[in-house]
Computed example of a mutant assay.
Amino acid sequence: MSLLDRITLKQLRALRALADHGTVTAAAKAISLTAPAVHIQLKNLEEISGTPLVDRESREGGLTPQGHAMLRAHDQIEAAITRALAEVEALNAGTCGNLTLGVVTTCKYFAPEIVALLAQDMPDVTIALKIGNRSELMQGLERGEYDLCIMGRPPREPLVGARSLAPHPHVLIARPDHPLAGRNDIRPVDLVDERFVMREPGSGTRILAERFLSDVAEKKQAATIEMSSNETIKQAVISGLGIALISGHTVAYELQMKRLVTLNVVGLPILRTWYVITPRDVPLSIVAQRVREWLLENAARFLPALDTEARL
């Protein structure tokens, strides 16, 4: 019997539970086993692997590098089985297959439209939509949880395939009664005394805003206030707390309703790109290929229309 034949899902689940819950007792409770049973599963897995997987010096269920390698295998296997079961359910329901689409939180303003249009154009495909931040999507890609993802900058790790989907404009928003609203000759230096509403550190929008601010205030530190989501940023600007550099696709409705305006600053909007991301080492299913091509061909149908002409 090969080593592969001796490894069981129960052993791998015990390892995952230990990593998640920190102690054998807590892990046993989480997966409805006794502590001795979990201990045996972990011991058997270590014997099969021929190496320690659990760091015995750690009091919180830490794993060795070999343990983390086995943990990644568990996550990938679980994701593959979950997707297979969803596909079986879709086939049993009379559809041709299912697809899990992951999108970053900024996409939540148009992602439901994607699902609705796909339901019209591909009624034989079941779409599962998952929304998360960039870090969560990258982790999910590594575990094999997604067939396709939509995000801005393609991640360097894990290795993925990326196809350009559409322009992604970032605009500077303000209240309609802001003193600079309606002007066409705004220079970055004119914004030096403004307060900027920013996303949390690590956000792609935050990184873009910080680069913009470095040009705005070369000698003076710009005043900033931090918000945790695009929704709170929009409400903060509407309330007069400041101005914000933000994805144009997140404020299309507020601009249409005249609750916000874009400031006509030289060099704006900043144009980035939306990408369709696929796992590099996982062959695309026929359904995933169909949906990816549909996304590339139909971006104009689901992305809000915006004036993205840069001001020079």
Rank of each mutant, 00 (worst) to 15 (best):
S164R: 12
E142T: 11
D193I: 05
R211C: 09
I173Y: 00
N298V: 02
G144I: 05
L245T: 04
I131Q: 02
P201G: 06
P188G: 11
V261E: 01
D190E: 09
N230I: 07
E60K: 15
L296Q: 10
L312A: 12
L3I: 09
R153C: 05
L245P: 00
I7D: 02
V251P: 00
A111K: 01
V251Y: 05
M122I: 08
I40F: 09
R143S: 12
E78S: 08
D75M: 04
I277R: 00
A244P: 08
V88W: 12
A17R: 03
A26Q: 12
S239E: 15
W294E: 08
L296P: 07
V24Q: 13
L9Q: 12
I114S: 01
I233H: 04
R290Q: 15
R163W: 13
E113R: 15
G67I: 04
E47Y: 06
T8K: 11
Q235F: 07
R153T: 12
N184Y: 09
A69M: 08
E60F: 13
L172E: 02
T34Y: 04
A128N: 14
L137D: 01
G144F: 02
L63Q: 03
G132E: 05
F212Q: 02
L172C: 06
L12H: 03
E254K: 05
D121M: 08
V291G: 00
R183I: 08
R272A: 09
I286S: 13
T82R: 13
R175Q: 13
V189P: 03
H21N: 15
A27P: 01
S58G: 08
F196I: 04
E78I: 07
G140E: 05
A288W: 02
W294N: 05
V54H: 00
R199T: 09
L15T: 01
S2L: 10
R259H: 09
A299V: 05
A27E: 02
S239G: 15
A252N: 03
A128K: 13
L159Y: 00
G67S: 03
V54I: 10
K43L: 14
Y146S: 04
M70I: 03
D215Q: 15
G240A: 04
L284Q: 12
H249V: 03
E231F: 11
K258E: 14
L15W: 02
E194M: 03
A90C: 06
S32M: 13
P36D: 04
T308F: 05
I207Y: 09
A128S: 14
R187N: 12
E142W: 07
A310I: 15
R280Y: 13
A73R: 11
A79M: 05
M198G: 00
A27Y: 00
P179E: 09
A35D: 15
R13T: 10
K43P: 03
R83K: 15
D147S: 01
V38L: 12
S32A: 14
M151C: 12
H170G: 00
L241D: 10
I127L: 10
L148I: 09
V24H: 08
S58R: 05
T64W: 06
A30Y: 01
E60L: 14
